[in-house]
Every structure is written in C-alpha cells, then in structure tokens.
Design a protein around this nucleic acid. Structure first.
Ligand SMILES: [Mn+2]
Ligand SMILES: [Mn+2]
Ligand SMILES: [Mn+2]
Ligand SMILES: [Mn+2]
Lengths: 259, 259
DNA sequence: CATGTAATTTAGTCGAGCCTAAACCTTTGG
DNA sequence: CCAAAGGTTTAGGCTCGACTAAATTACATG
C-alpha cells in the first residue's frame, strides 16, 4: 500500500529532444514504413551519429524498436508519446492562430517550442476554448487526448484531373514562404480549387480559386493535399488505408524490419 | 558590411536554467543586497556546489559579479535578462488567469516553464490582448518591455495599525494553498481590508473584508503587502527607496560586496 | 585570540545530447 | 560476383548542469 501506484504513468517526463525525435520518427514511419537514421538526422538538423546515439537510448527505454542498419519503428509506448506531442503542437498552432491572431506561416516555430512546456491542463483549456478542433491551421488532423488520429491518405493537388474541383485540405507547416504564397492566392484549407489546365512534362498548372486563376508549379501542387468534391472520396470498397509495416512504396522503397 | 551587425543583441539565447538563476538572483539581491550561494540553492532546489558552478559561468559571461564567499550581484546585463524573464512570467500568469480561466494558485508553475519557451512576439501579443497590464494576478508589478519596473517597497498587512484600512496589493505566488485560502476569505489584490484587532505576542489577527471578519495568523499577514487607503503612502519627504548595494538590514544582514 | 560552526568553494563524477573521424554494413552497378 | 558508394554505427570528445565528498573561508563566541 505504501508503494506509489506507478500504474502506467509515463515515467519521468520526456525531454524536449526526446519528444522531437519521437515526432520525427512518427512522421517518417508513416511515410516510409520505418524511419531511417539519416532521415531523422536531416529532419532534426543533427548529425547521423547523434541519431544513432539517441535511438539507442530510446530503444533501451522501450520507445522504439531498432534493427541496426534497417531503421526504427515506434513501439505502442513511443507512438503514444509522439501523438501526445503532436496533439499539443497542433492545438497550440490552432490557438495561436484563432485567438492571438498569429499568421499561419509563423505558428509552427512557436508551437515547436511551446509543445514541450505546456501542461496537459493548458492544452485542454485551449482545446476547450476552441471547441475541440479536429484540424490545425494547416489542415493537419489533431489527435484526441487519448491518442486517436485520422490517418487517411489524401491525393495531392498535382494529381487532380483537369476539369475536376476539389477542396483544399492540408499543406505542410514547415515552409513559411510557401504558406505566405498560398495565402496570397487563397489556397488554404477549406478552399475550393479547380484544375483548369496542366501543361505537359511537369509544366505549369492553371487553377481556379474563386474568381482568380493562379498558375502554379508542379512542386507546389504536389505539396497540397486535396479531397474530391465532385464525387465522394472512395466509391470503391473499403480500402482500410493500410497502416503499420506495410510500406507504401512511394518513389522510395523502404525497409520495414524484415527479420 | 558583410559582418552581421551584432549590435547589442543578447548573444546566444539563454538556457532555461540560466534564466531561472538570474531571476532568483534578482529577487534575492532585491531583498538582501546580494544573493548568497545557499539562498540561490534553496530557491532553485539544487545543491550549493551546483550554484557555485553556475555562478562561475554566469560571471564569465558578464551576467553577475561574484566576490567569492560574499555573494553575487547582477550586472546591468544580468538585470536586463532577469527582468525580461520576469516580464514574460508575469504576462503569462496574467494571460492564463484572465483569458484561460486558470485559478491564481495554479498559474505559477505553468508560467515557470512557458517563460522560457514563449517568443517575444507571443508575449507582446498576450500583453496587447490584455491591454498591457501593470501587475500580475498576485499583484506583482510587470516590467515593461524595455526593462523598467516599479520597485516600491510596501508594508505588510501584519504592520497595519489597528483601526486602519488598506488596499491589498500583493502576495507571493509560490504557495498554492495559501493562495487558495486567501481567495476563500476574499483577500486578493484590490480588496479593502481593515485591521480590526490584533492579539498580543504575535497572536491572531482579526480583519474585516467586506462583511466578513476572518481571523488569520501573523505569518499569513506578514506575507500580504498592502497600501494605506486612509492616508497617502508616504507623507514624509521623497525616500528614493534605495536600490542597489544599500542592503536594507531586514532581520538578516547581508554582505554587499565590500571590497 | 583561538576555535568550532556554518557557508562556500574545489575536486571529481555523471548523464544527456551533441560533434567529427573512422570503421563497418548493404546495396548496387558494372 | 565484386567493388565502389552510401548509409549507419562506433570511437572518442565536448559542454552544460547536476551531484557528493572534501577542502577552505568567514564569523561568532568563549
Ligand atoms: Mn507545425
Ligand atoms: Mn519541438
Ligand atoms: Mn509566478
Ligand atoms: Mn522558469
């Protein structure tokens, strides 16, 4: 009875670097099936050798599984921690934008630091003040307090067939100047965008957004996620958007811990 | 021209421990004329030897002057850094209380962490949203963005003569249960409080606040700062509230760097 | 004025995170 | 099928900020 009931209390609080590593691994694992050392390194702007060192520590504490030379994957415990930080990040971005008038190209850096300092209470107060939003200002889904997230994979604007109209859903929050440009042409989450024309050989893409017809490059279009408006998302059967080790070979095949 | 204009940019950003040390030193220096190693240690809950180590580093970077065995004092540079952190802390406490509904006994811990993570932009947005408050929820004065702060020394409630009425101004933010109790008896900044009776030999003190007549101990009363309402603060000449090395010997004489 | 006590500093250590350089796997292309 | 290339890990080091244990200093007091 005197033994402090440790239950499944998440042990000592995670440090800022640890939380950032777990977030990065989560994202890379989603994209490639497993996170490569060098990808983590460049995501966090540290040397690859530093990543190896941190991975050893994370593995020893049960946050990741590591197969040397083959990458890391989060354990359930690691995924829980990553989603917690991601929730905080996205609630913070939402709050800063909606309540304090931050422009959407400047919230990311702020949230990147605050996510480690804010208490659960603060995050939940902000979420409540906002009416429990489900997406951040860039359209990224906000995990619930108990670790659920919508992981649907959407199409990019670059893939939208000519003549079709879609709803803009999401864009990466990491590139401020891209975000400013998107705001300029009103290509923001919720906006309706029509594919007017696409020049061949990765040429310029003409869109219609409201009354304007901006012309953008294929790089930009490839970074914007959209959802078809003209037809419902998937008329096909129920494709369960294969989650874990099933690496979707998307231009870059990765190694999903084949023992 | 290619040399980055360093101006008086505050060098590399300060770490969280450094900011907390500077704040603690600022407060102790205000009270005793200089900060003693052991006082800093207990304020920050670290070992005295750790403080000596940090002080060496702070001195080498020009944030403090250290006379071995005699304590530290902030340099102008150190004072500026300390007041910046204090401003952030107090703006944060004000915002959390006023906008997010935090109870005043729980804002301190939150601000203690956020103060190191929030950008200047965030702090100024919060300050603007609040209409640039001059005191935090506990009545502590908020330094301006350029480092000005009201350092007036007020009387404690314990010193209020029987029969006099005063305005409650301030109380330490460090003791949550004290704060909860004060809220219970409505003894909060701005409240009018009358000294009804004081039993001899540090006995219980009877107050009147509104219609209630709470009886409190002398310890509590000594922690509450008040300002006379019946007469103006200081009918005497202009006592410039002696600032720097003039240690006000208040029950504990300290050593103000006598070389 | 000697000496005991309390405060402070020094000495030595540690872990977290980072780095560079060198060794080591895996993959791949000739 | 073998060697170069890339990616990864190991080896060795560094700074920051903490600790304990052992000097050292200041001060009070008899
Ligand atoms: Mn972000
Ligand atoms: Mn971060
Ligand atoms: Mn406080
Ligand atoms: Mn702090």
């Amino acid at each position: 009875m005197t033994t402090p009931a440790r239950d499944h209390a998440s042990s000592p609080p995670l440090t800022e670097p640890v939380e950032d590593y777990l977030k990065a691994i989560y994202t890379l694992e989603r994209r490639f099936g497993a996170a490569a050392t060098s990808d983590v390194a460049s995501a966090l702007a540290v040397a690859p050798a530093s990543v190896t060192g941190m991975i050893r520590r994370l593995a020893s504490q049960g946050y990741v599984d590591h197969v040397p030379y083959r990458g890391v994957q989060l354990t359930a415990r690691g995924r829980r921690a990553a989603l917690r930080t991601i929730r905080r990040h996205r609630i913070l971005e939402s709050y800063l934008t909606a309540v304090l008038g931050y422009p959407w190209d400047r919230v990311h850096d702020e949230a990147e630091r605050l996510e480690h300092a804010a208490s659960d209470e603060l995050i939940e107060r902000m979420a409540t003040a906002l009416g429990h939003p489900t997406a951040d200002p860039h359209g990224a889904p906000i995990p619930t307090a108990d670790g659920e997230v919508d992981e649907t994979a959407y199409r990019t604007l670059a893939e939208l067939p000519v003549g079709e109209t879609a709803r803009m859903l999401r864009v990466s929050d990491k590139n401020p100047s891209l975000l400013r440009y998107l705001a300029d042409i009103a290509l923001q989450p919720g906006a309706e965008v029509t594919m007017v024309a696409r020049a061949p050989f990765d040429g310029p893409i003409t869109l219609r957004i409201g009354d304007a017809e901006p012309v953008v490059g294929p790089n930009l279009a490839a970074q914007v996620l959209v959802e078809s408006i003209t037809s419902s998302p998937l008329p096909v059967a129920d494709a369960p958007s294969a989650t874990f080790p099933v690496s979707t070979p998307r231009s870059r095949a990765r190694k999903p811990t084949s023992r």
